[in-house]
Nucleic acid binder design. Structure first.
Lengths: 345, 345
DNA sequence: TTGTAGGCGTTATCAT
DNA sequence: ATGATAACGCCTACAA
């Protein structure tokens, strides 16, 4: 493309026979500029198709008005919803969102953070990759004095802010709901309990059982991957037990879907014989022939909150440590809606 | 936060008693710098934790290495997949992706483009909002000499590049597939035919019918929204006809899902009595109890191609007009896999 | 109210 | 091979 021809405040100043400083001031609503001059400058700027050079502005001010968001994969609904929340909260404040994908690899995070810190962004919002064991790249952010907020996944450390979901509560609420439906033999399809979110959901599940005086049985806890087939296999193995469950709380919607499909194969009635609750509230859950009850992590809200935390931090000259935990939300659908309360007189 | 303290090439030059120019050259692999000096500068830079200021660099060079992507909503799988493709293609080239959501409102596009053109990005990739009637904001991009590439949705105009899906072909292939399954009474749940993609899919459908000598019947074409309920309603209305269809090609996966659900209610066997094909290849289609055949727009590939087009454009000093049309891909699943070809002897 | 001048950090041109 | 200097476009003390 042929080179761009940019109009500068200098061009305007020459045309109007005033100084560039005056033009700058007029454009920035400096109170001590005369109304007349200001209007004139404004008009001329529009006429000449002047566009403020945000680079120069940023270089001068040290602020870019760009913020970075690092997620494992952008095309996962959970993360894209978070980003949507962030974008919607920050755009009105004049910020632009720069997206990076880590592909769950620390090495990518390291490289991206390195370039981002080269005066590319004012702040960084991130969900750290599962494989991160070394945290030097995180330290480099703090060392650079760039505000940092974690969402969904964080590191155990003071000095950083985070917005997380209360996964313990999620497990608790889901299980409690199943108990309220009259279920007493509740199985749990859990994820890898070395990962915090899965451990916490499991612990919440266990706590709810205890609270309601139900015996916890390791036989009822099966580790699955977040795949449909994995959920099916889990049901097959559960149905080999002496006493089969009357409810399943799955730590993922795909596993829940698999469980439902396998139960249909076995002609088990849902929710009459077995109630199902999934996790994540993936879009498809509500569109199923058998809509799936699911515990949601409200990702869009999480994004909004994370953005608010970062806005607060930007305003302050001192460091603010905020640890926010959002409550999960249960969307009750056919897969577990056993009883409809009749309020008629 | 306390102010950032940035090391500049000037700091390095002072420490080494050489000029800033030399430092800059050493850092930029200038061939006429002595190996010794270069190594020394490099080491010192690392020691002092020097970070190149990309703003200053951008101001000087006129290039930011940022590219903008404008989509209606980032949390729609189709768009987030495109963005993933774009990001993965451009990151290795040192570009960063700035995301904007238009929420399908031209006004948002207008405002975002205005700020983006303020030296924020080198190029713009976008999918124009459905409601756009006036195109001044697009003109402003061209006027600014900022390279522009449309993906998925474009405007009719020379002077712009675009990467689109061949929706006509999508409609044709889907319909052809149904005919190959032995279907002869093929209904089409279409979208608003004022929108190009839906019009083209419809036309492709019609062309396939003609090609195979099947009469087109307007009774078999029903306009639906992209909602499950809408697909259900469409089936109900189709089943009021004298002759009911033996296949349905839906221009959206949710409508296809609705159709399937309603047919199950009617105890119609799928795919034996009726074959179904959806569009978009949403993630859920393959996880259904009845996995849905769907025609895919290969969004991630589309993103990759769009990124390649823009990279080419960046390299050239003259304008390149590229109009690329990608072929759709049919994923055949249970909802239409009527016959398994038996090749045994 | 407006003008002058210097600096943000880098790079490119012209000397040396 | 290296140094001095100006320039990218804007903002802001300080002066007038």
């Amino acid at each position: 493309m042929s080179e761009k021809q940019r109009i500068t405040i200098y061009d305007i100043s020459k045309k109007l026979n005033i100084s560039a400083a005056t033009v700058s001031r007029a454009l920035n609503d400096d109170p001590k500029i005369s109304k007349k001059t200001q209007d004139l400058v404004r008009e001329t700027a529009v006429k000449m198709n002047y566009k403020r050079n945000r680079l120069a502005q940023a270089l001068k001010s040290g602020r870019t008005n760009n913020i970075a968001v690092i997620v494992p994969y952008i095309d996962r609904n959970f993360f894209s919803s978070i980003i949507r929340g962030i974008e919607e909260e920050l755009t009105p404040h004049g910020y632009h969102v720069i997206i990076c994908q880590s592909h769950e690899k620390v090495q990518n995070e390291v490289e991206q953070i390195a370039t981002l810190l080269n005066t590319q962004v004012d702040v960084i919002l991130m969900s750290i990759s599962k494989t991160a064991r070394n945290f030097d790249h995180i330290r480099s952010i703090l060392k650079d004095k760039t505000p940092l907020v974690f969402f969904d996944r964080t590191i155990k450390s003071p000095q950083v802010s985070s917005v997380l979901i209360d996964d313990f509560k999620a497990g608790y609420i889901a299980t409690e709901h199943l108990i309220n439906q009259g279920c007493k033999k509740i199985a749990h399809l859990c994820g890898d309990r070395n990962v915090n979110i899965y451990k916490n959901r499991h612990d919440g599940y266990r706590a709810a059982l205890k609270k309601f005086g139900i015996q916890y049985s390791p036989d009822y806890v099966i580790e699955v991957s977040s795949k449909v087939k994995s959920g099916m296999a889990a049901v097959r193995s559960l149905w080999h037990l002496e006493v089969t469950p009357d409810a399943i709380f799955a730590a993922g919607d795909y596993a829940a879907l698999g469980a439902i499909q396998e139960l249909k194969n076995k002609n088990v009635e849902i929710p009459e014989e077995v109630c199902i609750v999934g996790s994540s509230n993936e879009p498809f859950t509500k569109y199923m022939e058998m809509p799936i009850t699911s515990i949601s992590q409200t990702p869009r809200l999480m994004g909004k909150i994370a953005a608010q935390v970062i806005l607060e931090q930007i305003k302050e000259s001192y460091f603010i440590e905020k640890k926010i935990t959002l409550p999960p939300e249960l969307f009750i659908r056919d897969s577990s809606a056993r009883s409809i309360v009749d309020l008629s007189v």
